[in-house]
């Protein structure tokens, strides 16, 4: 499914946080949102997912204006993975993934065959199928993040939004999570901090600065020393990685 945003503007009180952002994501594409702290990545992601209402502008998912789609119907097409969401409740792995079926169930409906298939497939997809009864509290950071992705998959979405899914994970789990998301057969939009990870896993990258789109294009086109200097205020060398042809960024201490 395609995601198209037109002239999105959003702010709190008189401070504008997202300034006139337009972008478009093709079906099946993996789009990275990068930018310094406070550049509006998280806010833009929430606007695109329909969790916040823009002050003006609109978002279309598969040609439909999401402001016109009821919340529940939207949640059957669009999943959102928060950064490190946690709970004190004593839920199991299966309980958490079952929550993903919420938008597909009516208030009193029983647990259907389709629900069970979706949950089983989602758990298998993140390789946690054998751990259904394990309590949430005993999972590691990487396992929790995988479980959140499984829950999002159980929604059977066609678009997935992820807000810094690799936060607080070690490098192995960062790569594992992003590889998993890239290989999913759906459109995904990921807010990321790590520029090299964005270069490795995203088809295209949007660079945000102060809430506006500063650059947009393939990793090689966007991640130039000039942009990195202007937006992130670092000096860096960018070299092409020999295997993938994707850019590799080396920061210099100056």
């Amino acid at each position: 499914m395609s995601v198209v945003a037109e002239n999105l503007i959003w702010g709190v009180k008189r401070r504008t946080i997202v300034q006139d952002v337009s972008l478009s994501v093709a079906p099946g594409e993996t789009l990275g949102l990068i930018g310094p702290n406070g550049s509006g990545k998280s806010s833009l992601l929430r606007l695109l997912a329909g969790l916040k209402r823009p002050a003006s502008g609109r978002v279309q998912i598969n040609g439909q204006d999401i402001a016109q789609v009821p919340r529940k119907a939207l949640s059957r097409q669009v999943a959102f993975v928060q950064q490190s969401a946690a709970t004190d409740t004593n839920v199991t792995v299966a309980d958490v993934v079952r929550l993903g079926r919420t938008p597909h169930r009516s208030a009193l409906a029983g647990w259907s065959e389709a629900d069970e298939v979706a949950v089983t497939q989602a758990l298998d997809r993140v390789e946690m199928g054998t751990r259904r009864k394990q309590p949430w509290q005993t999972l590691s950071g990487g396992e929790r993040q995988r479980l959140h992705i499984a829950r999002a998959l159980a929604q059977s979405p066609q678009v997935m939004f992820l807000d810094e899914p690799t936060n607080h994970l070690d490098i192995h789990h960062q790569i594992e999570i992003l590889r998993m998301v890239r290989d999913l057969d759906l459109t995904s939009i990921i807010a990321l901090h790590d520029l090299n990870l964005a270069a490795m896993f995203c088809d295209r990258i949007v660079v945000l600065e102060s809430g506006a789109v500063r650059a947009c294009g393939t990793p090689a086109a966007v991640l130039t020393p000039e942009t990195l200097h202007d937006v992130f205020r670092v000096s860096a060398h960018v070299s092409g990685s020999p295997e993938s042809g994707r850019p590799h960024i080396r920061f210099s201490p100056e």
């Binding site: 529940k72 949640s75 959102f80 928060q82 969401a85 946690a86 409740t89 839920v91 929550l99 938008p103």
Partner: peptide, 12 residues
């Protein structure tokens, strides 16, 4: 379970 925003993302 995982907060208000999560509930909203699940269509509530």
């Amino acid at each position: 379970t995982f907060g208000d925003e999560d509930a909203a993302a699940l269509g509530v």
